[in-house]
Design a binder for these strands. Structure first.
Lengths: 91, 91
DNA sequence: GAACTAATTAGAGAATATGTTAAACAGCAA
DNA sequence: TTGCTGTTTAACATATTCTCTAATTAGTTC
């Protein structure tokens, strides 16, 4: 399929929550991690899944790594879903 | 979460393909199953996952069970994704 | 009732996903 | 160098997912 990884990435509630947090702008890995009662390696794994699906992009700034939503891929997922459901995009 | 089951259901390529087939109207379980090189029980399990997520609805007609897309839930998933991604619905 | 068709459920096994701790590693800054 | 931020790897435990065969249920037809 076109973007199987993205749909798999969206299957986990924590990963969906991370994406929601990134909706309004970038956040550092630590800022995100603080919001979850989960070990850092586990969070890092979730970041890696999202990154592998290209749903997020990483950029290092000094000591921190900032993540931001990849809107292009988000749009692709939405378009794919609308096509799947036969829903027309009203422009 | 609001619709965790739907996102999990969408994580499997066969289930996404089934939804696509139902885009243009209902199909019987057998008609769908014929399209896949997979045992009927396995397909039935996929139907059950989609049904549990309310993405499809079943109706028995005689010996056959017809499945159709639940457009309402499909719309909910799309809206949820657009909200998640901060993408506005252009009306 | 018996035979037949369509589809699901049950149970088992394999594979994948998720999470942990502990340790090592990478990159940057003071 | 030392410390901070974050990722990666390893070893491990547990849970879920996926697929199969075999058995069962539901409905039709004779």
């Amino acid at each position: 399929m076109l973007n199987s990884k993205a749909f798999k990435a969206l299957a986990h509630p924590v990963r969906r929550d991370i994406l929601k947090r990134l909706r309004d702008g970038q956040l550092s890995a630590g800022e995100i991690a603080d919001a979850y009662d989960m070990s850092k390696p586990s969070l890092s794994t979730h970041f890696a899944v999202l990154k592998s699906a290209r749903l997020i992009q990483a950029e290092r700034k000094g000591n921190h790594i900032y993540y931001r939503l990849n809107v292009t891929v988000a749009d692709e997922v939405l378009s794919g879903l609308m096509d799947m459901f036969g829903i027309e995009k009203e422009k």
